[in-house]
């Protein structure tokens, strides 16, 4: 079947422009070519929302935000952060704006929902249409809210989003009390697999969540939903990252445990992307990597320290540690 696929990328923390996905997309194209001998017939669309955060940053110092943060634990961390020079790092600010600035968050959610919605309309043109969303880091929390809005408004009532791939999933640690990622009450996000019951409003056909065990970021309050394994796949792997740190989108994309199911959902090529082939790729990918021993030790310590810490303040502390030790 000739499948016409659109792949949407959502970026993570920090500054990004419309080229942020290019390295990851080039890798996927190259990998598909070498595995199947065919060019990857799909269109990649980057969704950028950093410009909205940037416009807010320019209105004044975000230190002004501090009096209105209503979580005592987070406030304590911010006071520590402000004492250091690290407070204004965009990574921290992005997370703070996303978590605490309701209007900026609403603007990001609605803008991306308006960009994703026409692609869901296109799916009704035929069964050969595919749509795959790949979100990384902060983008996973953003994707959760965007897809929830679309489902809540009924856009996914008839055509579910075929596949969502969450790399370094932080949807749980960045959830807000009024909209949990999967726990209840209140009603959790509709960004979850559809139960296949007619009235169920779950927005997704398949939900893939990936966690690099050497990346401390998704370890804090890790994403562990009580969903059936059939339509939810949670994958863990270990990769130090060649030339980039373990949290980087490229570290994720270049892991066979990620690119094999990802390319399968883009191409639906069941002959190439078999579980057996994935095992072969994993055996090939076990070569040593260039990350320094010292850096590995620091990351291991962080991962050990922050694993399964329960809260948002721990998440901020971890980002502070990583920026402080130049691990980005």
């Amino acid at each position: 079947m000739n499948t016409e696929t659109t792949v949407v990328f959502l970026h993570g923390m920090g500054k990004h422009d419309a080229t942020f996905h290019e390295a990851a997309w080039a890798f996927l194209q190259e990998k598909h070519q070498s595995l199947s001998g065919q060019p990857l017939a799909a269109t990649a669309i980057p969704f950028v929302y950093d410009d909205i955060f940037e416009s807010l940053r320019q209105t004044g110092s975000l230190a002004d935000l501090q009096p209105f943060i209503y979580d005592a634990g987070v406030l304590g961390v911010l006071q520590d952060l402000q004492a250091s020079d690290l407070f204004l790092y965009t990574h921290v600010l992005d997370v703070l704006i996303w978590r605490f600035h309701t209007q900026a968050r609403a603007r990001v959610i609605t803008q991306l929902a308006a960009a994703l919605s026409p692609l869901l309309v296109d799916l009704t043109e035929g069964p050969d249409r595919q749509l795959v969303v790949i979100a990384h880091s902060l983008g996973t929390a953003v994707a959760t809210d965007v897809i929830h809005l679309l489902a809540e408004q009924g856009v996914t009532d008839y055509k579910k989003l075929p596949a969502l791939h969450m790399l370094a999933n932080v949807a749980k640690v960045l959830e807000r009390p009024e909209r949990p990622a999967y726990n209840s009450p209140p009603e959790p996000s509709l960004c979850r697999p559809w139960t296949r019951e007619p009235a169920d409003k779950g927005a997704l056909q398949r939900y893939h969540s990936y966690r690099n065990e050497l990346d401390p970021i998704p370890l804090v309050d890790a994403f562990r939903p009580p969903w059936s394994g059939r339509w939810f796949q949670s994958t863990t792997f270990k990769a130090w990252g060649a030339g980039v740190q373990p949290h980087d989108i490229l570290t994720y994309i270049k892991a066979p445990e990620v690119y094999m199911p990802l390319l399968w959902s883009i191409t639906l090529d069941e002959a190439t992307y078999t579980p057996e082939r994935e095992q072969q790729e994993m055996a090939l990918g076990a070569a040593p990597n260039p990350a320094t021993v010292a850096r590995q030790a620091v990351l291991r310590d962080l991962a050990q320290h922050y694993a399964d810490k329960p809260g948002f303040q721990d998440f901020l502390k971890l980002i502070q540690s990583m920026t402080g030790q130049k691990l980005w």
Partner: peptide, 18 residues
């Protein structure tokens, strides 16, 4: 966002969001 939020002081827009 452009007509209201960005015209407010950050402490105002954050308080309003809260």
């Amino acid at each position: 966002y452009e007509s209201v939020t960005l015209q407010e002081y950050p402490w105002e827009s954050t308080a309003n969001g809260w």
